[in-house]
Design a protein around this nucleic acid. Structure first.
Lengths: 198, 198
DNA sequence: GCGAAAATCTTGACACCGTCAAGATTGTGG
DNA sequence: CCACAATCTTGACGGTGTCAAGATTTTCGC
């Protein structure tokens, strides 16, 4: 697949370097020039592979979504006969991904990427992820675990719930009176159970 | 309160200029130098009032939270005898604020402000806002509208649900199969009703 | 009310940033 | 093998956050 030119596979090396800088210095520390330096090329070499910085960010975000999708699917497919467990394990995996890849998660969901619809592979993997959520929700509905609203709408409810709590927590907006007593994992689980039919 | 020096009340003028640039050019277009220029002062005048750019962003975010708090309280206090209506109107007000002040909302919640706990007035107003949510949730619980879990935990659930859906929608992560059929307002309302005791 | 001290603002500089143009180098296909 | 395309380097440009030095204005103790 990737042909070897001067560097080898600079495009992926740049994405990888970006992920590393992101993890080490946060979103504010991510610059094209640092990415280039870490990959061992000159400051404008990236322009052979990405038309601009936004495009590299799109690639990093896409990579993040691919990983998130993989982890979600792994969590779900381990319990293919138990929709409720699929839901719970999927939620756990989502929270786990966010906490383990804090800045990648931020870049994926915090508006750093400004015109996401311009990047088709980003749109592809993120809508594929949404479809995965819809499937689990639908299975839960068929099993009577979730209410019988339209599946895509219910999927937005469930995903929104999880995503919102995680986002607020990462943003420091969840009061310490709550965080002192419960982990984010627990808070999300308790919240999701409010949506589940008793 | 604000004494008049050379400019008059440059500190607030800078915050206002920041809000305007934010609305016109988005988060990416917000620079200290543009803010200074719009306020009619030299490029480093802001340093008399803010130690760095993050500090100005904190002030803008704080201003945003003040406005959000005011709108939430207005929505809630119009229905002081009907907790369920308070909840629904409060949620509507939250969604309305997000959509009317898109980039301010982003700056408040999207990790642009990196060390939020360093800014005490930001912490004050945001925890005050959280307390407001807890109060409404508690009133709903007393009226049997919401389940009887610990109020602060339930508040995180409710706020997280609303905030998550709004965030995902603003990020373009809500599938068009949903958005074509429902407004964000409707989606959030339908979702919240899943949490309300029937 | 006056003069010292503090607050405010300007000017100029620095390093870093994203981006582009010109050219050098390297791989590929006819 | 050679023209061409892909890849990478060098150098430049304007914009950015920040700091230092100095000018200007207000405040405050006497």
């Amino acid at each position: 697949m990737p042909k070897k030119y001067h560097h080898g596979d600079l495009k992926n090396a740049l994405i990888q370097a970006g992920v590393e800088i992101l993890a080490k210095e946060g979103v504010g520390g991510l610059s094209l020039r640092k990415v280039a330096q870490r990959a061992g090329v000159s400051h404008s070499a990236p322009y052979a592979h990405f038309p601009d910085k936004q495009s590299l960010i799109a690639a990093i975000s896409t990579e993040g979504f691919n990983q998130l999708y993989a982890e979600l699917e792994a969590a779900i497919s381990s319990h293919s006969k138990n929709p409720k467990k699929q839901l719970i394990e999927g939620v756990q995996a989502y929270v786990h991904f966010a906490m383990e890849n804090l800045d990648t998660f931020k870049i994926m969901f915090s508006g750093v990427l400004e015109k996401e619809k311009d990047y088709s592979s980003f749109v592809d993997i993120s809508s594929k992820t949404f479809k995965l959520v819809v499937e689990v929700v639908q299975a839960c509905q068929n099993a009577g675990v979730l209410p019988a609203a339209p599946a895509d709408l219910m999927a937005v409810s469930v995903w929104g719930q999880v995503h919102g709590i995680v986002s607020l927590a990462l943003e420091g907006q969840v009061s310490h009176t709550v965080l002192d007593k419960h982990s984010i994992q627990d808070i999300v689980l308790v919240s999701i159970e409010q949506l589940i039919n008793s």
